[in-house]
Design a protein around this nucleic acid. Structure first.
Lengths: 341, 341
DNA sequence: CTGAAAGCGCTTACAG
DNA sequence: CTGAAAGCGCTTACAG
């Protein structure tokens, strides 16, 4: 059977829709007796307010939109987890869209969400994103927006990120302190801020420890794949036979590199130390176990959603909105892949 | 600025809302001249129909709901990927909820989606789900429902699954053919159908190859974690020093087991062969690379969504709905962890 | 204490 | 060819 409406309850009870509505919302100007009758019947018929009607009437959809480059990705999956968890607490539902690192898709998806009249949007940018017009449209349209992880500094809104530069600095410093003298970096693409910041952290750590930065030790992983890690492992040995440490943009790349070394009798960490980034669940199970940097994905999701809800509420009350920039702490996890004996 | 409405366009042009609406929908009873004027202004003002109003008017939300036990899980993440991809093609948005393997949460989430008046629901059951009342409510409510992966045979609706029994049979047979004589099974919890079916496939493969089934070789991983794999690896060696093969419910469990063996100088595959399940992205990078069974996650998501949309359309046209049971093929992936020399 | 009316933004059967 | 009216299911200011 279809869902019950206020009108049906009103008809059965022989009263008006208005009174039913008010009774259910516990208005003080309805008699206790009427309230009781209404409540009982509503319960019996399992009345549930129609969300479509509520949205239109209240001008809020109680839904927020999320655009993310990739769902099947450990870190993002954790962020989604945090967002959904927190959204449920605040009574929001989450529509998820995947940009697949495509700028065109991302642009279309912004329109989809805007048309859907979501109450707010959470976004992590694709690597391809070069124009910010679509994103600025969200803001000029009056829809609260919070950027997380893959952000652009050029957009004026709240942001939740990790301190990539500091995290990368610590990872690189960890290799240095464990005895590495010549450290390569398998970095991410040139465009995304996070990839730039990790590179800068790497570079700064070298300089602070009086190791000359050598651009030929930096390899670009455009797809951030294990295959690239595998291939560059071979390449870096050819280019620099005396390399003794690698800082990889991601655990996946690090795992690919390690797999090459394992297959070719090069001992990790004795000959080459490796550290990754992200702390994938399986990283501790690699042989040797992979050192890495833990990123608080779930927490990032929760924080981003929390700020978004704040801004939605401020907008409703027509209060001014203050933008936040939150940097979440990361944690270095030293395992066996960087333990020089 | 807020979004433009039909009324605003009508006012500017000095015509009625009705005509604007019809012009935009290219009704034949509107003059070309009017249509042109309306279209141009609509474009200029970037008019986008209000989805809330459309939903209420058309009695469809163009939104479907998805309830899944866990998002941060490789296989499920791929399924979500497939669902979202396909949904976008059909013009549907997807609201995702995570049951976290909790029956209570799952029940609440069903209500949330029903209240939201989603056009259809996609679900994979939690391990805890023992009562099917909430799920049957979806059906009696008239909302199309498709179950995938973790299903219950007791619910009368369409289902998309893999043939777990066959896949497990093949995995076990692969170990037998590679020379294993005494094969343990690190199985999943007792309740979920998939876990039962994989166990049955294991058992049947043994019997078909004249290996006596020994219940003491079966260990239950209630949380399906790598830690359980690690612990049971130690345990099985103690209980059965001559065990020479393990079929694990999941790659994660297998990785845990392999990590124990690697740490304790037990050679995989020479002493013990291991095969997992699911083909996690990192499984090929383990040392030795992990044999496994590939499950078509993305395809499963696409199929499930395709069927759901069919049923939504059939319902709209008041056509009878025919339930499908789709079994997707899996693929055995033999790698080094099961290669006896 | 109760309810008729207006309105959220659309669509469409109907009248002119 | 155009537009007034009704209606999707609610809420709330207002009248009685």
């Amino acid at each position: 059977m279809a869902q019950v409406t206020l009108k049906e309850i009103a008809d059965i009870l022989g009263i008006s829709v208005t009174t039913v509505s008010k009774a259910l919302k516990d208005y003080k100007d309805v008699s206790e007796e009427t309230k009781k009758k209404v409540r009982e019947l509503a319960k019996e018929l399992d009345y549930q307010p129609n969300a479509m009607a509520l949205s239109l009437r209240n001008q809020e959809s109680r839904t927020i939109g999320l655009i993310i480059p990739e769902i099947a990705h450990h870190f993002f999956a954790n962020i989604i987890n945090g967002i959904i968890l927190e959204a449920e607490k605040h009574g929001y539902l989450v529509i998820i869209l995947q940009s697949n690192e495509s700028f065109d898709l991302e642009t279309k998806q912004i329109d989809l969400l805007l048309n859907k009249r979501v109450d707010g949007i959470l976004m992590s940018l694709s690597n391809e994103t070069d124009s910010l017009d679509a994103i600025r449209k969200i803001i000029s349209n009056g829809t609260p927006l919070v950027l997380f992880d893959k952000i652009s500094k050029m957009v004026n809104c709240s942001k939740v990120i990790i301190d990539d530069q500091k995290a990368a600095y610590e990872a690189t410093e960890h290799l240095i302190k464990s005895g590495c003298k010549k450290i390569a970096h398998f970095r991410g693409p040139l465009n995304p801020q996070g990839s730039i910041d990790r590179f800068l952290g790497y570079k700064r750590a070298l300089e602070d420890h009086k190791i000359t930065y050598d651009p030929s030790l930096v390899y670009i992983c455009n797809r951030i794949s294990s295959q690239e890690g595998f291939d560059y492992a071979q390449q870096v040995l050819k280019d620099h036979p005396d390399v003794d440490g690698i800082f990889c943009i991601t655990d996946l790349v690090a795992a690919g590199a390690m797999s090459y070394f394992n297959k070719n009798g090069i001992f990790v960490p004795d000959q080459i130390s490796i550290i990754g980034f992200s702390n994938w669940p399986i990283s501790s199970l690699l042989t040797p176990s992979l050192s890495t940097v833990d990123q608080p994905g779930t927490r990032m999701g929760k924080e981003a959603l929390g700020i978004l809800v704040e801004e939605i509420n401020a907008k409703k009350k027509k209060e001014p909105i203050e933008y936040h920039l939150i940097q979440l702490p990361t944690k270095l996890i030293a395992r066996n892949s960087s333990k020089k004996s």
